[in-house]
Nucleic acid binder design. Structure first.
Lengths: 329, 329
DNA sequence: GTGAAAGCGCTAACAA
DNA sequence: TTGTTAGCGCTTTCAC
């Protein structure tokens, strides 16, 4: 029965005190160099691993960071998580991922769990909030909001106003006047801002806003799907559609393809986010592309600093989105 | 300055011993019911969270599980991770994800880190092994291999022989005789088995194997891409192609689409894995579909048992793949 | 029903 | 250069 290899067990094994072993392995205090070598040697052959639990108890930060995303299937989140995971490995951090399904209760659970393991920092896409009073922000865990912002704490946001504007310009230039929009509702900062950008752009072209062309609700694949279906059902006439969210975009696209809508003949389509496959669907999906990987690397860079000495630098950045024009519009 | 809320701090606060508080919160020993309520109340308002580190030090299992995947972008791994994350939340487990990039060194690093935090179990897609002696398997961490198997320990595998066979049958029925195959090389169990299935199927149809039609190497997007490019470059004549891996499939598909190959006119294409977009590309990509979500749920179900009392049940299962026929073949 | 003591593995602080 | 002591937050054991 293999009992755990600890500093003490190595120490007894070598006839030393456990402190010498500690010093030898951590490289901190002074240790005779041959003693050090002997200890290191022994530790390696015995397969010693330092207990993170014990270290954490001594009050040092845990090198655990959390990531909360609505899902991992959408390529934006998947790529973000992928990039972040690689960056974390480089910084010797452990990445704990929780999928919230955009559910505030699940989100709170996840945060709770992360506090139990004393995660030093968490990157999270805040779920749409119900009206309940939101729990106090724990002070011991640095939180960075992603994409949407719920409060004024640190955040990595997308600056997509220009891209949305460009999308409208592009569609208008193609002769469209009845341009639909499906986006998140007012509960989310991202929803508010994208809708605003869309409205402003219409205004610039002297197109009166038509609320039957604007669909907003908590964002999801299903919502995007149903929203597009509603618009296409012919009660209103739309000739173009702009999507204001990752899930929404995929859902709306599926609705179009599923019913045989020809892009761009029947509908000019502008998606949101740029999964690899968009390039190959319907001759290429016009879409709003985000610098996903840069965002993820930026997040970890910020965290790594954060986790060191208590630097109070707020990482708040805004990354520019860009309109990619392809055949679908 | 907020110092951590601990059992002791609550105890002092309430004029009790920390043991009473412990019992009150864990619900184990006997505590006067109004004392218990008072303690719980206080703990909640103070925002107490039990220290996972301290619990771990007391020798109890950590409720941390690891997942090692080559990447998180491929929809198979993404969906697997997504499903597993949700299942873990349901079991109150923390999921630590490491992206290995199919690199054995990174993989060892990740395992090491997971041992530091005393992860109870790890699900991993073993990286292709170089010839170095592989490090001893730690006894304290249960490991489940995914898709590929490196040794005889527990594994969740894909039974795709029948599906590959069906793919060949289908292609032959369509009149194809020059059927190419791109797959992982002999280093991986999955590579060996899929290649074998392909060869057997050809044999059944009395088609002599042509090694110029068979490309094997460590699997990756790039490898799939380049493999397909080579086959299509016209030195050999191929009329159909079967892919034997997730990354390979995406890479090969991109190569085809990128050079304007018309599917199935120029080439009958059979992919591996069924990302959502395959449905919409080139009128629908024929592919070998795997029960991803079931596998992930099966994995967590197994782990949850495993992490309880030391049940020695080996979770080893094989999940059947299925050929989905669409327009591309 | 409640408390006191010990110890999990580690390191900071002091002693030799 | 090396060793001893104490304590991080928790639970098991035993005493009251």
């Amino acid at each position: 029965m293999s009992t755990r290899v600890t500093l003490k067990s190595i120490a007894e094994d070598l006839g030393l005190s456990h402190m010498t072993v500690s010093r030898a392995l951590s490289g901190h205090g002074n240790v005779q160099s041959d003693t050090r070598r002997a200890v290191q040697e022994r530790a390696r052959t015995l397969g010693y691993v330092k207990s993170a639990a014990a270290s954490a108890m001594r009050g040092r930060p845990t090198r655990i960071v959390g990531l909360l995303v609505p899902n991992l299937v959408n390529e934006f989140y998947a790529l973000f998580a992928d990039t972040m995971a690689r960056a974390c490995d480089a910084e010797a951090l452990q990445l704990v991922i929780h999928v919230t399904n955009d559910d505030a209760a699940v989100e709170q659970q996840a945060l709770q769990r992360l506090r139990e393991v004393q995660a030093g920092a968490v990157v999270m896409v805040p779920a749409p909030q119900s009206d309940r009073p939101e729990p106090a922000r724990p002070e011991d865990m640095r939180i960075v909001q992603l994409i949407r912002r719920r409060d004024q704490a640190a955040a990595l946001l997308i600056d997509d106003a220009a891209a949305i504007s460009a999308a409208v310009d592009h569609l208008v230039a193609r002769g469209h006047r009845r341009i639909g929009f499906i986006g998140a509702d007012q509960q989310l900062s991202s929803g508010r801002e994208r809708l605003l950008a869309y409205h402003h752009a219409l205004q610039r072209h002297q197109i009166a806003p038509d609320h039957t062309l604007t669909i907003t609700a908590p964002p999801s694949f299903r919502m995007g799907h149903d929203g597009a279906a509603t618009l296409l059902d012919g009660k209103v006439s739309v000739t173009a559609l702009i999507c204001g969210g990752f899930e929404i975009s995929n859902g709306a696209l599926e609705a179009c393809l599923g019913r045989g809508t020809r892009l761009p003949n029947d509908l000019a389509f502008v998606g949101y986010g740029d999964p690899a496959a968009y390039q190959w669907i319907a001759g290429g999906i016009t879409t709003i592309r985000l610098p996903v990987a840069e965002m993820a690397r930026g997040a970890v860079r910020g965290l790594a600093q954060t986790l060191g000495p208590t630097s109070e630098r707020q990482i708040s950045d805004s990354y520019p989105a860009k309109l990619i024009i392809r055949r679908s519009s």
